[in-house]
Write a protein that binds this DNA or RNA. Structure first.
Lengths: 143, 143
DNA sequence: CAGTATCCTCTGAGATACTG
DNA sequence: CAGTATCTCAGAGGATACTG
């Protein structure tokens, strides 16, 4: 996959996600490294859910836990720690009794959010088609 | 996270990824389900790498293996099977000797590609900042 | 309230060897 | 060439209990 890029262009079904107008957005091995980085960061079970939830504004620790069904305290803590480490989420603790801690998207996190929403939009748009294809595939293979 | 959406808007750093112009692209629990679907599909170690490689056109099985450094035959086979199941990749086998099989992106796969490229662009743009933040965080926590 | 600490399970993925 | 079949293991993630 050498020099040329996107000879067959994306066909661009949706208007709100557009290929870059200029010289970028082709695939090479550097892109591969970069995207593996984000996916390691965000491809786990809870990160995007937290990011999406924080899109509505700051949340306290336990409100986050309540807002995200199924997450365990351990995973909430761990994932928040990782998001904080990469600078996507900020943590502010207010020295009160009882303690109050608020998590919010940073500017970096917010910039990622729009891309993530594009992915969400894609999946919302295509998940019916995907499911159909999956069951058809399974039916063709199983019997 | 109820009715309101994106009160603090994405700030939209980059021009080639835009929020939807119309009424969509906010976060609710349905979105959460959908995006978990795509991430399960594409968040694994090899799927996006295969998709990105196939962006340049059809590939034969072993050419794919060569083009993607580090992938094992097992993982190549498994991931291709899953991509085929969800309809992102097509497989055409030519009845020749020796056998020849070509994998290519379907239209669905191509439509996903543009979104994936947006993610890649985001990470290419921010990975320096991320790394800086990570080392700063680690330095602040460790000593 | 906002987390840590442990233990335990199950699956993603690598290595290796074999086959139509 | 284009795959399958086993074996193996690290670590992601769940349950539960405890703490400043």
């Amino acid at each position: 996959m050498s020099a040329e890029n996107l000879r067959r262009r994306p066909t661009n079904v949706r208007a709100n996600v557009r290929a870059a107008p200029g010289p970028c957005a082709h695939w090479d091995n550097e892109n591969a490294d970069f995207i593996r980085e984000v996916l390691d960061l965000v491809g786990d079970k809870w990160s995007v859910l937290i990011i999406g939830t924080l899109a509505d504004g700051p949340f306290r620790y336990s409100d986050l836990g309540d807002a995200i069904p199924g997450i365990s305290q351990r995973m909430l803590t761990l994932t928040l720690k990782q998001l904080r480490r990469t600078g996507l989420v900020s943590r502010v603790s207010y020295p009160e009794v009882p303690p109050r801690v608020e998590y919010a998207l940073t500017e970096l996190g917010t910039s990622l959010l729009s891309t993530v929403l594009a992915l969400a939009a894609w999946s919302a748009e295509h998940h019916v088609q995907i499911r159909r294809h999956q069951t058809a595939y399974d039916k063709a293979a199983a019997p």
